[in-house]
């Protein structure tokens, strides 16, 4: 019987849970062309985390996660409001909102939270190496708190995607048709981003807010280079994310560097390999083309 509280198991399990849930939600984000919203949300939740900490004195727990997740949704709302004034393009609106919320978060921590567990470096970089220290006992089993939070978030994400798969798919590829069919793509969009935001809050302990973006964007982007089917894309992205955690952990132990950073970085070689494969395919197709008979050249 492997103890869930043993450091190695806790770290690996948490890393894989973060990766898989991020890649699951990230697939839709990347397909919709909104990848930078992941960056915006993950920076903005610092504001929510700091505020939730100020009000409750805790950074983990369901209330804190939900509260902090609201700040991610707030960021998206602010970005939409700014864009709707038509005085700013959406890229400038994103770039204006999240640094501001992030700055307020950092200053709140600067002012109120000196010498406390919460500091901006932890939020930014995460410390997955310590997740096994903070445990709670559930039904006689000792569980790391962060691992449990991630497992709950993954379950929520998975249920959401399974239940709303059709609406999500339609809202991603053809929002107009989704609207015409009465599927409320806007509502699905916000539900999706709220979950992403909540997952980011649960993950910040482990990998930090910026490294979370890696798991949201890189595995789905890699999968997009390999397949065109949505279900396959999600599966490949989740596999890549799950594989990156142990690879990154091994490298981190070997070089004695940040575990979270190393896990995130481990997704990079997958993207590079997929890119190289794509280029090779294109080059091969180009080489083959002149040999084909003229009649099929139009294809």
């Amino acid at each position: 019987m492997i103890s869930l509280a043993s450091p190695t198991v806790a770290i690996l399990l948490t890393g894989m849970l973060v990766g898989v849930s991020a890649a699951l939600l990230g697939s839709f984000l990347v397909l919709r062309g909104n990848s930078m919203l992941a960056d915006a949300i993950s920076h903005s939740i610092l504001f929510g985390i700091a505020l939730a900490w100020l009000l409750t004195g805790q950074t983990t727990g369901p209330v804190q996660i939900a509260g902090a997740a609201l700040s991610g949704v707030l960021a998206v709302l602010l970005i939409e409001t700014l864009t709707r004034t038509r005085r700013l393009r959406d890229d400038a609106a994103i770039g204006l909102v999240f640094p501001a919320l992030f700055s307020i978060g950092v200053l709140l921590i600067n002012v109120f939270a000196r010498d406390v567990h919460l500091d901006e470096h932890t939020v930014l970089l995460g410390e997955i190496g310590f997740v096994w220290l903070d445990t709670l006992t559930l039904g006689g089993v000792e569980l790391p708190r962060a691992t449990l939070a991630m497992a709950v978030m993954l379950a929520l994400d998975a249920v959401f995607v399974l239940v709303f798969y059709k609406s999500l798919k339609l809202a991603t590829f053809d929002p107009d048709l989704a609207r015409a069919l009465g599927l409320a793509p806007g509502l699905v969009f916000y539900a999706h981003l709220s979950l992403l935001s909540g997952t980011a809050v649960a993950a910040f302990d482990a990998v930090g807010v910026v490294l979370f973006v890696t798991f949201v964007v890189v595995p789905p982007a890699t999968a997009l280079l390999l397949t065109r089917r949505l279900s396959t894309l999600i599966a490949v992205a989740m596999l890549i994310a799950a594989a990156s955690a142990p690879i990154g952990y091994g490298v981190a132990l070997w070089l004695d560097v940040s575990i979270g950073g190393s896990m995130a970085l481990a997704t990079g070689p997958f993207l590079a390999a997929a890119y190289a494969w794509r280029r090779w395919q294109t080059a091969r197709r180009r080489r083959v083309r002149p040999v084909q008979p003229a009649s099929s050249a139009s294809a």
Partner: peptide, 24 residues
């Protein structure tokens, strides 16, 4: 060279670059 759009390219390089930075 791929069907990735600018947003995905930006976010991917941003986060991978930062991850490399944290490791270093």
């Amino acid at each position: 060279h791929t069907r990735l759009k600018v947003d995905a390219g930006l976010a991917a390089m941003l986060s991978l670059g930062f991850a490399l930075g944290v490791v270093l």
